[in-house]
Every structure is written in C-alpha cells, then in structure tokens.
Design a protein around this nucleic acid. Structure first.
Lengths: 235, 235
DNA sequence: CGCTCCATTGATCTCGATCAAAGTCCGTGG
DNA sequence: CCACGGACTTTGATCGAGATCAATGGAGCG
C-alpha cells in the first residue's frame, strides 16, 4: 500500500505569478474579496471563470431542494480550479473565512491563453489532475462506514494540504461544514473528534486548532493500515 | 435544480476510430481480452497506459489491508480513461464480465500525440472531464445516508451511461460490486433493490436486468427532488 | 449431479441520526 | 470593562437504519 506516495498531489498549486510565463495570465486576474459565508459569485456566472484562492478558504456546495447542503469540495490558498457545473443552478461557491480573497480569471481568456502557451496548458492540466485526486480522496472518505474513519480521512486530507511548519492543523471550516462534507450529522462529527482526542490520536488547542500525536503522524497511512477500532487497541 | 442538464456528460465517449484524426491513435492500440474477474494489467504497469473499454465492463478497485475492496469507478464500452495512481500498488483494474475487451494505449505515445494533434488533446481533456463528473456523481451517491438513496443514485448513473433503446438497464456487476462501490453491505443493497421494486419504482427481469417504471423515468431528478421516503408516500 | 458463486431473507445488535439541552466562543454595544 | 446575543460546539438520551450473523434459495458450470 503506497497511497502515501501521493503526498505531492495534495500540495497546493505553486503560485501562478511565480512563473514568468504566467504574467499574461496574471493580467487577466481580478481579485474578489468576500465576507464569511458570502457567495463568491452569482451561481449562474460560476462557469464563466477559473478561480484561485489567495487567502482564506472556500467551499463548493450543492444545495438540495430538501435544504440539505452537500459540500463537494473545499479550496485552500494556492488551489486553482474551475467549477464546471454545466448549467446546474444550485451549486454555489462560498467563502468560509472572513476576509477570503480569490483571484478570478475569465474562462474564455484562460482557454485562449492555454492554446498559445504550453506552460499554462500544463498548469491547467495539473490543476485538473489535482482536483481529480481530491475527489478520489473524498470518495474514499465517504466510502467508510465508521464515522471516525470518515473524520480521520478528512483530517488526513487537511494534513496533506494545510499542515503548517509547527505541526498544527487549523480548520477554517465549522463542524457543520465537515458534517456536510462527510454526509454525517454535526453531533457525530463532534463525537468522532472527541473520541480521537481521547484515544490520544489528536491534541486540540481550541476547537479549530489541532495536532496529530507523534506516534500517528501520517493519518492516511494510519487509516489505510488499520480500522479505527484496531487503532484503539493499539493505543 | 438542473442537474439533469448533465445528461450528455454521462454518455459514452464517441468511438475514437470514428474520427479520421484518430487513426494515428488507433495505430497505438493493443487489444486486451480478459476473463471475468481477471486483472487487466499488473498493477505496477497500470500507470503506463490509457485504456478504452471495447466490450464488457471493468472496475477500478482499491484493495485495503483489511481485505475490503473499495471500488473507485466502473468503466463501460466507449469509456476512455487513465488510472493515474502514482505508484499506489494496491489499485487494480479488473474485468467484470466474461470476455471483456479493452484497448490499451501507451501513455507516453498518447501524450506525445496530443501535443501534435489538437483533436486528440481535446479528446483527452473531454475524457478527463467526463471522469471528473463521474466522480462527482459518485461523491453525491456516497454522501446520502439512506441506503435506498445511494442505490437510486447509482442506478441513475447507470441509466445515463448504459440505458438501451428498449428502456432496460443491464447490470454487468454483482451485488457485491455495487456494495463495494457504495460502501454498503451486500445484504443492504439487496434489500434496497427489493424495496424499490415493491414501491413500484423498479421492475426486474431476472436479477441483473431491470426497468425504471414509467412515472419515475429520470431517477436523478427523482433523487434530487425528493427523499426516498417522500417517494414512498407518492407511490 | 453436485459444486461454487451469487442473491435473498430473517434476527439481532451496533452505530449514527435525531431530539433536547447545556456550554463555549466571539463580537458588539452599553 | 462587562453584559448581551448569536453562532458554534459539545454532551446526553432515545430511536431507527444498516452491519453482522445465519440460513436458504437460485443459477451457471464442470
């Protein structure tokens, strides 16, 4: 089992403007600043752009007629993505943190540019590929039946994408967001986190700041090699 | 809610060899015939190719140390895809039906070709995009909590990708495969299908041949607009 | 004919949804 | 500075859906 060979795929995209070949792309950039919970863009315009998170975090949400919110994806600084929703009116892109800033690129311009510049074409392909991996991981999270396994998988994903140098993970999203991402109830998410804390796998510093205990530093490997019940036995 | 606007995205890819610009691609093609349940290719070689299902069906499976099988994706005739597993040894591609035939294309050759031929580049992008939609649908299926909703979502996907002119769906995969795709137990899948039959939503002709009852002909719309409980009330 | 794989059905138990109630955090305004 | 309010989080109790265990029933095949 070598899923950990995927580490790099979770890393945020390199900042576009670090590459000289992308200055043309940066000329197309429009910055969009959003308040917490605010829609980044009217849903019907979502298809028309490529996006990049500058600071903060965003979520792509499928709104169901029943009022439920299915969170399809989280986006973090550096992530470059498009929401190809093909006319589906009930998908929205929302800022998670106060003061989230996204770069917005007109899609037609980007596609034109990628035909002229192979570096940009490559970057778009990489972004697409990275999104594909995120979805695969999401599928793997949702596929588990135990709630602790789902939450563990989610944290593993965050660990790959957001871990800071001091070893702490910060969760910009609420427990509600995590629940809507994993198809669980808020209460279950909360209980799962509490359980992982009591098992010594997680250490909290406030509700949205946490650390993975030393002995279990690669959560994905942990998840793949043992069910959470076995983990409990090992602890 | 206009998810049904996605219909076309589920349609199988046009046969490559229908396009004259693809004759070069067809020269790279190697046919691989497989028995039921057989691995299409040694796992370590999986990354090296692009594939297309000719006849039959295939599944991409993540094998867990616990012995569980997480089915990441099903492939049907016309589907053109790559398994970018990046060195993960425990992903396998297996034939589902007896006599499944796949076309195999050397990945390096394909990538070289796409740089020369924009038609092929476009085709690859379309294939990638289609795979992305399949994953999104898979996520939506898994996200539901009720087993009947998951199964209904799965059938909606099959309906889009495989419905024949006579209105019947054929399921090439076993109940075990469906269970491993949806993160359910076999028994629950079986019970869900039985329940949908008794509610008058499905009509069976044998175990793997079924029809959607007239009044509920678009399962995806059905799933989006009403929980399965409400469906029961409506029946 | 009997074997193996697949599918269904039943009974029981566990885990997570749901309902209900505190408790915590944070920003705002007095 | 503190009080208030609202959103977020946690914990408890109950109930139901699905996992699990167990058994039976086909269907294809050597």
């Amino acid at each position: 089992m070598q899923l950990h060979a995927r580490h790099d795929d979770y890393a945020p995209a390199a900042r576009l403007y670090d590459h000289r070949s992308n200055q043309k792309l940066q000329e197309l950039r429009t910055s969009v600043a959003c308040a917490k919970g605010q829609e980044v863009c009217p849903p019907e315009r979502l298809n028309a752009y490529w996006w990049q998170v500058e600071t903060g975090a965003a979520r792509k949400v499928l709104l169901l007629p029943s009022g439920q919110r299915c969170i399809m994806e989280f986006f973090f600084p550096g992530d470059f993505f498009a929401c190809y929703t093909y006319g589906c009116a009930d998908i929205v892109l929302e800022a998670i943190s106060e003061g989230t800033v996204l770069g917005r690129y007109n899609r037609d311009d980007v596609e034109r540019l990628q035909r002229e510049d192979s570096g940009i074409a490559r970057m778009l392909r990489d972004a697409t590929l990275r999104a594909a991996f995120h979805r695969e991981t999401h599928i793997f999270n949702l596929w588990h039946q135990r709630s602790t396994d789902k939450v563990l998988g989610f944290l593993a994903q965050i660990q790959k994408r957001r871990q800071t140098s001091n070893g702490f993970l910060s969760l910009p999203m609420s427990r509600y967001d995590i629940a809507d991402y994993l198809g669980l109830s808020v209460e279950t998410v909360s209980r799962a986190l509490t359980e992982l804390k009591e098992r010594g796998i997680l250490e909290f510093d406030g509700t949205r700041q946490l650390r993975i205990a030393r002995h279990s530093d690669d959560l994905l490997t942990l998840l793949l090699h043992a069910s959470s019940n076995e983990l409990a036995a090992a602890a």
